Simulated assay, not measured.
Amino acid sequence: MSDLNGEPDELERGLEATLFAAEEPLTIDQISAHLGDCDKSLVRDGLQALAHHYENRGVRLVERGKRWHFETAADLAHLLRREKEQVRRLSRAATEVLAIVAYHEPVSRAEIESIRGVQTSSGTLDVLMEAGWIKLAGRREVPGRPVIYATTPDFLDHFGLGSRRDLPGIDELRASGLLDPVDDAFEEAMSAGTEENEGKDVAEIGLEHQCEAGAEGLEGHNPD
C-alpha cells in the first residue's frame, strides 16, 4: 500500500477498509504496519475521526482493550438477535471468580481462593477460559511459580468496557441498583460467618451481580 502519511482523507478510507476486512480487532501497531508503517499518531487521529463519524450510525467504531473494531450499535441489537437454546449455565462460583480476576488481575488460583474463602475448582476456571473471558497471563515469580490469570479483550467487549479502568465503582453500582441497599451488601461482605463473600469488597459483589446479568452469552436464550 502506498504511503498514506499526510493524507487524512485517504488515511481514513484506508483505516475503514482495513478494519472492515479484519477478522479480529486490531491494535494501532497492527493497523500502522498494515498501512505501510503509517505514522501511529496519524493512525490514532484517523481512528478518532472515524469513531466520531460512526457514533450515530448503525455500526460504530470502538476501542476495547487497545484494539479497534466495528460493532453493531447497541440500540439496534434487537434487529439482529436470534434466539437459541443453550444448556450450559454460568454458576455463582464462576461469576465470583470472574469478578475477583477483573478487580485483582493478574491473580493466581491460590489468591482467588484466599479472597473467596473457599477452594476453586479447575472446572470453574476452564469455563471462564472457554468463554474467552479470562486467560493465562504467565506465572508469578515466587516459589512454585503459580499460573496467574487475567481478563481478555472479549471480557471488555462483552461488558462494554473500554478498559479495566471502566469497571464500575461503588457509586456506579449503587446508581444502577446492583447495590440496593449498599449497606446490606457491605454487611454481607463483612459478615464473618458468610463463607461466600469472605475477603471480598462491595464492588466485587456488585460486579458479580453485573456478571450474572451479563452472562447471557452462556445461559438461557442467547444471541448467536
Results as ranks from 00 to 15, higher is better:
76 L>S: 06
3 D>K: 15
36 G>K: 13
114 S>V: 01
127 V>F: 10
27 T>C: 10
185 A>H: 13
140 R>C: 02
153 P>G: 05
153 P>D: 05
10 E>N: 13
6 G>Y: 15
192 A>V: 13
137 A>W: 07
193 G>Y: 10
26 L>Y: 07
163 S>N: 14
90 L>E: 05
160 G>F: 06
220 G>T: 08
102 A>E: 02
60 R>H: 08
65 G>C: 01
146 P>L: 01
12 E>W: 04
166 D>H: 12
172 E>V: 10
25 P>G: 01
157 D>N: 10
196 E>G: 05
90 L>Q: 09
77 A>N: 04
166 D>W: 06
36 G>H: 13
176 S>W: 14
150 A>G: 11
141 E>M: 04
58 G>F: 12
71 E>I: 00
71 E>V: 05
150 A>Y: 09
34 H>I: 09
177 G>Y: 12
134 I>A: 03
21 A>S: 10
201 D>F: 13
61 L>M: 08
48 Q>L: 14
160 G>M: 00
195 E>V: 15
41 S>R: 15
4 L>G: 09
9 D>G: 07
223 P>Q: 09
168 P>T: 09
98 L>A: 05
17 A>L: 08
164 R>P: 02
44 R>S: 06
11 L>S: 00
44 R>E: 10
73 A>P: 00
145 R>T: 11
3 D>L: 12
126 D>G: 02
217 G>H: 15
17 A>S: 08
154 D>F: 01
102 A>N: 03
99 A>F: 06
89 R>M: 04
115 I>L: 11
109 R>K: 10
80 L>R: 02
164 R>F: 00
186 F>L: 11
17 A>P: 02
147 V>D: 04
221 H>L: 11
59 V>N: 05
67 R>W: 11
213 A>C: 03
224 D>I: 08
125 L>I: 15
128 L>H: 11
96 E>A: 12
188 E>T: 15
125 L>S: 01
210 Q>F: 06
44 R>M: 08
154 D>L: 04
207 L>W: 15
62 V>M: 07
55 E>F: 00
83 E>C: 03
130 E>C: 06
215 A>N: 14
